[in-house]
Design a protein around this nucleic acid. Structure first.
Lengths: 196, 196
DNA sequence: TCTGGAAGTTACAGACCGGTAACACCCTAG
DNA sequence: CTAGGGTGTTACCGGTCTGTAACTTCCAGA
């Protein structure tokens, strides 16, 4: 009895989960707090008891997204223990899978597009989380024995980021279809020039 | 006297120009029609006499953006008549310049992030305009003698698109700094495998 | 000079937004 | 049993949003 069903977890968790989903689907400015709380089966007062403002809720959603996405690195390590190159290829496959998951791009990128005020609290955490993601990919490339690890990681990052917005604008049968081919080709090419 | 100063052109032009600028800077949902008309030195009634809704204004702004961006292809042709490879390199330089122009990404991509309703009128023209842009780049690559023209064009597209969102999230000193190096390397690589 | 259409002005409708106040409820820890 | 904190409910505030109505002003062309 102490362990509640997920459907009936604490209000804070339900609000956070619901907000993440609705922000992702309809954009941040496209969703009001009333809609979130109603979908979460609670009310506005409870939301404002747990989050001091909508902006703080947005920030918490972004952090939760990053935390969930960050878990994939552990999955890669579990699937291919020690084999960093295999983990890099796993990242490519995972990225490709995300492209076909739904037509919405990266939540952080979308948030950055919507929240234009230069001092919006979300902008700081977006930058910080994106930089952390980059670090992980660079490290993976380096540990996989790639010579120019930073350059490969940045290239793969830009390709993936571009593919996500491409899916959002022209759908998943446009340039993003070639993502895996591009990424795999790049890895091969960078491994060729690896050296030591 | 018949030729009015740009500052005092017809209201429709002023509204369109002002809306393009404000949508770009603050996002679509971040700008109301009142703010647009005031900045354009006119009023809401005049806007609604020329555009039947804000959505139509949005669509017209996107078309105007694409038209202005499309003019660059003619500039390339004028700068390097007949030399398609030089024009491709000019595209790379132009793209890099856009990355440092301001911290805002592509207006169409940003609009697609904001306007999530699947049947929003803007989504159709975004897709159509993006596909036209892709066609032009593919044609340029093909005319430049690249063997796998579609693949190179798509790769460059994704890189550029990704670089624009990267600038928007982490600034122009992140992965997007390497854009020119990546693009030039790709062109060299694809020319090597050109063949006939 | 007269006229007609484009543009400006003011006010408003109806909806939604983020956020708060006051109060009733319920459930669990003591 | 009781006290108290978390939660639900209702109503509200001030502001902003898209879009419209009714009216006035202005200016160019006949």
């Amino acid at each position: 009895m102490t362990e509640g069903v997920v459907e009936r977890s604490r209000p804070r968790e339900r609000i956070l989960e619901t907000a993440r989903d609705m922000f992702h689907k309809h954009g941040i400015k496209g969703v009001g707090v009333d809609a979130i709380t109603e979908a979460a089966g609670t009310n506005k007062m409870t939301l404002y008891r747990h989050f001091e403002s909508k902006d703080e809720l947005i920030v918490e959603c972004l952090r939760a997204n990053a935390a969930k996405a960050g878990a994939m690195w552990d999955v890669f390590e579990a699937e291919f223990p020690g084999d960093k190159l295999a983990q890099l290829h796993a990242w490519v496959r995972k990225a490709a899978a995300m492209l076909n998951a739904d037509g919405r791009g990266c939540d952080m990128a979308n948030a950055a597009a919507e929240l234009t005020e230069p001092d919006h609290p979300a902008r700081l955490v977006i930058k910080e989380l994106k930089e952390a993601q980059r670090e992980r990919l660079v490290t993976l490339c380096r540990d996989a024995g790639i010579g120019q690890a930073e350059l490969l990681a940045d290239t793969l990052s830009l390709l993936f980021e571009g593919a996500r917005v491409s899916v959002q604008t022209v759908g998943n049968e446009g340039p993003s279809m070639q993502f895996v081919r591009m990424a795999e080709g790049l890895i091969v090419s960078f491994r060729g020039t690896a050296a030591g």
